[in-house]
Design a protein around this nucleic acid. Structure first.
Lengths: 146, 146
DNA sequence: TTTATATAATTGATATATCAATTATTTTTA
DNA sequence: TAAAAATAATTGATATATCAATTATATAAA
């Protein structure tokens, strides 16, 4: 039984792709690291590379809104991956620091993520990746302009 | 400031696309119809086309899990878009029926969705759409096999 | 300098996501 | 047929998504 509902297929496929990738990636991460989600992992990676990021900036990088980010960082602080401390230069912000426990995770996580990406992109040429970026870029532009 | 974190760009772009499309589509829907989300709308569309769907089947079509679907249908029943009734052929299931209020929405929703898709795919050729499906299909296959 | 505006983060309310456990029913198998 | 296995849906717990309102601080304008 086919459920073709007009031209939706494209968005269906796009959504399907990201969901399957996430499931796949989360599965591989959970095998090696307990108690961390992909998104929490991404927060650690970004903070590690750019330690001065504000919550707002992190939120944007991982596609969350500010309210979600507040709560996500709350749980990451509770789980001892992060520490919030004062930022005397701008007291509206916090300094978000990675704890030892967070750094432990950073020892293995990048490798896992790299391997996830590699295996999920297997058989896809550089040219195809470019194509993909170009086409999706057009969709994004169509959705965001005006 | 560029935040290039290894080869993640592809997945970043894919995720970005689907999120921007969703925002765009939701914005356009909300302009015309109050108090309905894209996903709730999709549930109505699928049920309209295939009235005998079970919750589980609907869930799969709109990328939710069963628990989410139970709750989503709860709220749609509470908001009077749907009605749950007994299914005497298999008492583990429900019959999910669209109410008058739900049918009202179906008068305008398909047109809005169609126009959303059309404008977000503007400038993208049939060939590019095929390309997209093929490449994303490979990623899905890579993530789901084994 | 005071006032107005902008910004970063939080909070409340409600919905959805996800996992694991549970209930009710149906189907399979011994 | 009785017991075991499978299926559809629900529930509980916890996290995240989203919107609107709020707090605290910083910056711009009068």
């Amino acid at each position: 039984m086919r459920f073709s509902l007009s031209s939706e297929t494209i968005f269906h496929v796009i959504e399907s792709t990201i969901k399957e990738y996430r499931k796949f990636a989360q599965r591989n991460i959970s095998e090696k690291i307990k108690d961390i989600t992909i998104d929490q992992g991404m927060v650690l990676l970004f903070l590690n590379k750019y330690p001065k990021l504000t919550q707002k900036e992190i939120a944007k990088l991982v596609f969350k809104d500010n309210a979600s980010m507040t709560r996500m960082i709350n749980t990451m602080v509770r789980k001892k991956y992060l520490k919030r401390s004062m930022n005397s230069e701008d007291r509206r912000r916090y300094k978000i620091e990675i704890t030892d426990r967070g750094n432990e995770i950073l020892k293995t996580l990048p490798h896992i993520i790299h391997s996830n990406r590699k295996s999920s992109l297997q058989g896809i040429t550089k040219n195809e990746r470019n194509q993909l970026e170009i086409i999706l870029g057009k969709i994004i532009a169509n959705c965001t302009q005006t």
